[in-house]
Design a binder for these strands. Structure first.
Length: 583
RNA sequence: GCCACCGUAGCUCAGAGGCAGAGCAGCUGUUUCGUAAACAGCUGGCCGUGGGUUCGAGUCCCACCGGUGGCUCCA
């Protein structure tokens, strides 16, 4: 076996960090194999912040095992073993990995005649590289957790144990990363939802949130915001049934393609399905009347409740639920109206994300998949319309080949939650398929019957999911217009309660949500509680304020402003609400 | 659904075969206070559910339900 030692390329810091992470994964595999003789190992790539490696072991790993593995890894690092690289013929590689079925499978999948091996000490792995020169170059790492993962991501194949680890150039960066994880847990929407009295879950209805009064208030404010945009952008809201005969789902194609995600009911010997989406119902609504080309585009909005059966293991707070509503809408239009509609949609999205202080989500444009219906020309037209609309609105986006729906391309937006998991917020899809299935028509200028196109679109997407992401994004400190309690009036002593109530009444008259904290507590405790509830404005009133019709304003940032006339504060607060300002 | 872990007071958690615990919250008093926790007392439990082992089970075993982190899935 011809061995050569070489230093792999390390042109930029990113590559070298990646290389270090990957080498750390090898060192972990070395440790696992030495601690668990007979261990079979799968793959061990780098990921954001670190690496993982999958193992097939005789027993489940415990947290103590992780400690032992980590200790073994530090031994290897202290020994500073060099990584050596060898290219060998496949035949030889098969002998090296004779007892490693997963590696043999990978070898078979490699088209080349030779494969590359990396070795440190007694441990050899099949790997493309590159790697560090030696184990001693690993800087800061920590093993984090164990999780199950199917071999090759296939649920019909064995489940391996995946160990996740973090690795960085410096201990400080690693410490920061671990601190970030803890911080993220602190702003987890499930925790904040309970602490702020917004919503909760009960095993009596898995995956289905209960929104408490404060939480429902915020929910309804979100809906109200969308309703205002609907007026501005020419949408018409409708209310449609919750439960439909299975005939509808057969016609729409959901019965064949989405059945396992739906709830069915039998009643009077007929089968009914609870709606998981609004589109088929909207097609029924469209075809209930005759339409002229003059009516198009027809924008139908619906906040109807949707139910989707999700497998128990995938449920997660508000971000993955079984019961939710969307700010859903279907736009029926002529082909020549598509681009303009998409442009308006993007402007609408922009306006929304600004008001919610969400920042720009990540946009993708999903193009034609292999399995598709329709002509190449219609796909060209549809993709171009979406692409041009995104460009002309100045959106940066990534094109993803093959990810479109079988009937049309789509634009998706994504945001990350506190734990860095990315969630799809919404989707804009061009759909000629449903109008076809439901034989939708409009009367064209020349009197002929034509088929409209349908655009499925939501901006918030699932309101529940959006809510969860928003709570985490602002760590529970909603922009004033969304805050369930906008101002807490805090009387210093009981004798100030009357003035406090008068102030709160003025706020209420101005349309603000203000409360008076009349509990027999010290002012400090009231301030603390209001701070913890992330109330935007705390209005402290004592002898001084009551005597001069003023307020001492404390913002939730801790900033204080004294001797503020009540009228001046009202003006400031109502302006902040109207402009959707943060504070 | 799969793998691992976790379910004890409203919340956060301790208790690991031998009397069910703490802090916060809640309730009742006292306190009337100037920018992030006043003081005292009291209440609160089918230890997720069902079975088993044992003289004895929050504690050990099995099943189920729910949750968490992944995996798979996600028009």
């Amino acid at each position: 076996m011809a061995e050569e030692l070489l230093a792999d390329v390390r042109d930029n810091p990113h590559d070298s960090l990646d290389m270090m992470r990957h080498s750390t994964a090898h060192i972990m595999a070395e440790a696992v194999v030495s601690l668990f003789p007979g261990a079979k190992y799968g793959i061990g790539p780098t990921i954001e912040h670190g690496f993982y490696y999958d193992f097939d072991l005789s027993r489940p790993l415990t947290p103590e095992d992780l400690v032992a593995i980590e200790a073994k890894m530090r031994e290897s690092i202290a020994a500073n073993r060099s990584f050596s690289r060898t290219d060998v013929p496949k035949l030889e590689a098969r002998q090296v990995f004779a007892s490693q079925p997963y590696k043999l499978e990978i070898i078979e999948a490699i088209p080349d005649e030779t494969v590359r091996l990396y070795r440190q000490g007694d441990f050899t792995d099949l790997c493309r590289g590159p790697h560090l020169e030696s184990t001693g170059q690993v800087k800061a790492f920590k093993l984090l957790n164990v999780a199950g993962a199917y071999w090759r991501g296939d649920e019909h194949r064995p489940m391996l144990q995946r160990i996740y680890g973090a690795a960085f150039e410096t201990q400080e960066e690693l410490d920061t990363h671990i601190h970030n994880i803890e911080e993220a847990l602190r702003r987890d929407h499930r925790r904040l939802g309970r602490e702020l009295g917004l919503f909760f879950f009960d095993p009596i209805a898995p995956g289905s949130p209960f929104f408490l009064p404060k939480g429902a208030l915020v929910y309804n404010l979100m809906v109200e915001f969308m309703r205002k945009l609907y007026v501005k952008y020419g949408y018409q809201e409708v209310i449609t049934p919750q439960v439909f005969s299975a005939d509808l789902w057969k016609r729409s194609g959901h019965y064949d393609n989405y059945k396992e995600n739906m709830y069915f009911i039998e009643s009077e010997e007929r089968e009914f399905g609870v709606k998981p989406m609004n589109c088929p119902g909207h097609c029924v609504l469209y075809s209930a009347t005759l339409h002229s080309y003059r009516e198009l585009p027809l924008r139908i909005a619906d906040f109807g409740r949707l139910h989707r059966f999700e497998r128990s293991g995938v449920l997660s707070g508000l971000t993955r639920v079984r019961s939710f509503a969307q700010d859903d809408s279907h736009i029926f239009c002529r082909p020549d109206q598509v681009q303009e509609e998409i442009g308006a949609l993007i402007r609408m999205m922009h306006e929304t994300y600004t008001a919610f202080h969400l920042g720009e989500p990540r946009f993708t444009l999903s193009l034609r998949p292999d399995k598709r219906v329709g002509t190449e020309e219609s796909w060209d037209r549809a993709e171009t319309a979406l692409r041009d609309a995104l460009r002309s609105e100045g959106i940066t986006f990534e094109e993803v080949a093959g990810e479109g729906a079988f009937y049309g391309p789509k634009i998706d937006t994504f945001v990350k939650d506190a734990l860095g998991r990315e969630w799809q917020l919404n989707t804009i899809q061009l759909d000629p398929n449903l109008p076809e299935r439901f034989e939708l028509e409009y009367i064209a200028e020349d009197g002929t019957q034509q088929r409209p196109l349908m655009i499925h679109r939501a901006i918030l997407g699932s309101i529940e999911r959006f809510y969860g992401v928003l709570v985490e994004h602002c760590a529970g400190a909603f922009p004033v217009w969304l805050a369930p309690v906008q101002a807490m009036v805090i009387p210093i002593a009981d004798r100030h309660a009357e003035y406090a109530r008068a102030v709160a009444a003025q706020m209420a008259a101005a349309g603000l949500r203000a409360h008076v904290d009349e509990r027999s507590e010290r002012m400090n405790a009231k301030i603390r509680d209001a701070q913890n509830q992330k109330v935007p404005y705390m209005l402290i009133v004592g002898d001084k304020e009551a005597g001069s019709n003023t307020l001492s304003v404390r913002l939730r940032t801790g900033q204080e402003e004294k001797d503020v006339p009540v009228a001046a504060f009202l003006e400031r607060a109502t302006a902040a609400v109207a402009s959707h300002a943060e504070l």
